[in-house]
Nucleic acid binder design. Sequence first.
DNA 1: GGGGGGTTGGTAATCGATTACCAATGTCCG
DNA 2: CGGACATTGGTAATCGATTACCAACCCCCC
Lengths: 356, 356
Amino acid sequence: MGVTIHDVARAAGVSVASASRALSGRRKVTAEVAERVTRAATELGYRPNAIAKALRDQTTGTIGMIVPGIGNPFFTTIVESVEHQLQETGHDLLLCASLYTPEIEARRLNTLLARRVDGLIISPCDFEASAPAVLNAARQVPLVQVDRYIEGGGADWVGVDDDSALAQAVDHVVAGGARSVVFVSSRLMNSSARLRLAGFQLATARAGIASLPPLLGEFTLAWGFEAGQALLAGDALPDAVVCGNDEIAVGLLRALRLGGVRVPEEISVVGFDDVGHAAMCDPPLTTVRQPVEEMAAEAVRLLNQVRVGDPRPAQRIAIAPRLVVRQTSRPVTRGVVTAGAGGTMTGDGQEDKETT
Amino acid sequence: MGVTIHDVARAAGVSVASASRALSGRRKVTAEVAERVTRAATELGYRPNAIAKALRDQTTGTIGMIVPGIGNPFFTTIVESVEHQLQETGHDLLLCASLYTPEIEARRLNTLLARRVDGLIISPCDFEASAPAVLNAARQVPLVQVDRYIEGGGADWVGVDDDSALAQAVDHVVAGGARSVVFVSSRLMNSSARLRLAGFQLATARAGIASLPPLLGEFTLAWGFEAGQALLAGDALPDAVVCGNDEIAVGLLRALRLGGVRVPEEISVVGFDDVGHAAMCDPPLTTVRQPVEEMAAEAVRLLNQVRVGDPRPAQRIAIAPRLVVRQTSRPVTRGVVTAGAGGTMTGDGQEDKETT
DNA sequence: GGGGGGTTGGTAATCGATTACCAATGTCCG
DNA sequence: CGGACATTGGTAATCGATTACCAACCCCCC
């Protein structure tokens, strides 16, 4: 630790300016000087201090990202995609989890701002409570919301078109013969839960079928399991269940199986996200695939085009998802067959039937 | 952006020194000055520049962490635990993924060192190829390995006692009547794969039962599925399968189910890690639980006690895990019954039978 | 041989927070 | 009232890399 460019310059017998120039190549130096400097640098094991560079350049080369939790596989795939996209621009990612708590989220925002990240990508955990801190941050640094967003539309957003998603899900189970559908999702503290419920109600109304009261809890396996037990305890099962995410769907499937209900013969189940293990549960899950890589690419693109203080109106980009039909939904009744046994192992969906 | 302590000092009508002292409280100032400075700071929205502070203090308040991938739920729980532990010391986490590639890992190490992290926690992806970069990093900054480690023992490590883990797994299936056991795991490019295979062979030898040739691929669902199909295609199924992690076990269970094999009646399956969904697969998975929170606490403790350049010998801390018996393994034949139907939803194992 | 034009090297300022050191002011007591 | 001492405020150096600005030098051609 602690070999600076001064040490390199001294060892090479030149000034710090020459050493800096030789190493960065921003201005020409004699071949001789370049040679001596680079050799001195490697010999001493010189590693430029990114902190000093950041202070001088007023740019850190880092993007901060805050998601509610990395235990949720949907968020981990988003994070991976964003990281992948940032490679292109040479930025590093500072990742934080808000643990679904607005206070922790606000604290994380503050430390990231203090560390002078060049931009922020956030999925705010709460529709209302997250708003002040997010808007404040957006005033200081380019900020893009992904997946979830805050009320009031004060900041850019990239996400999925939930109306389209739920229309596809509902239309699919209706085409399979369902006449009563229940929606199992999270309570409405975040935008995703709100939009998806709204999309569901719109879709059932348009399809002219019974939309039973939604079951709202959390986006977790445990809640899906609990909701499944609640359905079993009710008078009659609905023809189909549409879930707010795949975790819920998997928990629900498990409850149904333990209750002796056959899926999809007695009831269809549709998930949301298409996380990695959706294809590996039993039976393989019919679900709406989020266009995660596109969302990440769009978020990074937006981030680079945002200029703080520019009074450009906030943008909302909703990308249309695709339904991936596997085996938890009844085949459509008009002669089209469902996918063969086994589903896919690759998870890239090539072996799955998909809507076009 | 850009309100500095100079601006605050000017607004408060004092010098920068007084402003700094009033805000940090490191030296006494008049109540009057303190009052004026804090008011000026809040009015201007002053946010101290962590970059400048880091440069001056020669400490960033950040710990870098590198794991092979955050798609693997085991690593995400480790990350969450480490983050949780770091809260105590007020450090922030800079998280990176090596994507199971030594070159990317080395690059990540370099950028984290350039950013002058105060310490590094790493799970090196490759037993051999990761070694040079990790050892080099350990020379510059306190470094602790978690879970995986590199050859040669040049850096501290915290992990699970794989010998104990596999002894428990093997003894358990043997107690259930198994006489032939096959080990399905990853190829031996990382220490976990090596130690677990060694532990497995030791345990089967001691139990005096047939250890069939291991099936080695990757720590993924897909490989578990493939290995399951390979077993089905063989002459006779073994009595039991012990897996290198839970992903493999879940994939394998799925292959066995599709092949019409009943678990645990015809074959016992034991996983490794006890990730969140192990209790939610079907049937709920018997597995060895990694003491993740303890490992994280131990890693952070070690990190704080490491002094660079101190010629203290590298430490290895192996924490004993616990077998969590659920329903993929046959009950032991000596009158002890297995856990009831359903498993647990909480994932904290309270409803699971555990070895003591 | 000398001046013009071009190139390369060095000096010092800059980024923002902290703090060693010094100066000034106030307090208290003889 | 004066001196000893305590307390508080200010000035300037520091951390390390970058670069504006200036000086020195070289080459070439008249």
